[in-house]
Amino acid sequence: MTGPDVSRSGKRAGFDWPALIRAGLLGLRLQPDQFWRLTPAELRLMLGQDSGVAPLGRAGLDQLMQAFPDLADSNSTALDPANPDPETRAPSTTGAMSHE
């Protein structure tokens, strides 16, 4: 019998089976036979990994800020941090529709 596979860094290679089994049986409430029939990709998906788009990075934020700059409006306090309450803001003259 041989020992566990160990990578060059000295860490165990492969899956963390105890954590995966706990996640599948306790977290996802799978039956053992359901858990063992899953592929690693299916388990990752069910656990919420590899799902969705990567979070917005700095480059993406810079692109959005360039495409949609904050415009100062002398008749509006919408960008005034001293007056954050939308109920007391002066009406904007930027062509916004009235909600009355």
Rank of each mutant, 00 (worst) to 15 (best):
Met1Thr: 15
Thr93Asp: 11
Thr77Asn: 05
Ala90Gly: 01
Thr93Gly: 11
Pro18Val: 05
Gln63Gly: 11
Trp17Met: 14
Ser7Ile: 02
Met1Glu: 15
Asn75Asp: 05
Pro69Ala: 00
Asp80Val: 09
Thr39Ile: 02
Gly95Ser: 11
Gly48Phe: 05
Thr93Met: 00
Leu26Gln: 15
Met97Pro: 01
Ala59Glu: 09
Ala82Gln: 05
Ala19Cys: 10
Ala90Tyr: 00
His99Ala: 14
Ile21Tyr: 01
Gly27Tyr: 12
Thr88Arg: 08
Thr93Pro: 04
Thr88Leu: 06
Asn75Met: 04
Ala41Trp: 08
Asp50Pro: 02
Met97Gly: 12
Gly14Ala: 10
Gly48Pro: 09
Gly3Lys: 13
Phe35Cys: 04
Gln49Arg: 15
Gly24Lys: 01
Thr2Ala: 08
Arg37Asn: 05
Arg44Gly: 04
Gly52Met: 09
Ser51Pro: 05
Pro81Ser: 10
Pro55Asp: 11
Gln31Val: 00
Asp73Arg: 13
Phe35Ala: 00
Gly27His: 13
Ala41Pro: 06
Leu71His: 14
Leu79Val: 06
Leu20Arg: 09
Leu47Thr: 06
Leu38Gly: 07
Ser74Lys: 11
Leu64Gly: 13
Ser92Ile: 02
Leu79Phe: 09
Gly3His: 13
Glu87Gly: 00
Asp5Gly: 09
Ser76Met: 01
Ala54Trp: 11
Arg8Asp: 15
Pro84Ala: 03
His99Asp: 15
Asp50Trp: 11
Pro69Tyr: 04
Ile21Trp: 09
Met46Glu: 13
Gln34Thr: 09
Leu38Tyr: 08
Gln34Cys: 06
Asp73Lys: 04
Leu43Val: 07
Phe15Arg: 09
Ala67Asn: 07
Gly57Pro: 01
Arg12Glu: 11
Arg37Ser: 05
Thr88Asp: 03
Gly3Phe: 11
Leu28Ile: 12
Met65Trp: 10
Leu64Lys: 13
Thr93Ile: 00
Leu79Cys: 06
Val53Leu: 14
Gly10Val: 08
Pro91His: 08
Gln63Asp: 13
Pro69Gly: 09
Trp36Ser: 14
Thr94Tyr: 09
Asp50Val: 08
Ser7Tyr: 11
Ala41Leu: 11
Pro81Val: 09
Ser98Phe: 01
Phe35Trp: 00
Trp17Cys: 00
Ala72Cys: 04
Leu25Cys: 02
Leu20Pro: 04
Leu56Thr: 05
Met46Tyr: 12
Gln34His: 12
Ala90Ser: 03
Ser98Asn: 05
Asp73Ile: 07
Gln31Asp: 13
Arg58Tyr: 02
Ser74Tyr: 08
Gly3Gln: 14
Ser51Asp: 12
Gln34Ser: 13
Gly10Cys: 10
Asp5His: 14
Ala13Lys: 15
Arg58His: 07
Arg58Leu: 08
Ser76Leu: 06
Arg37Asp: 02
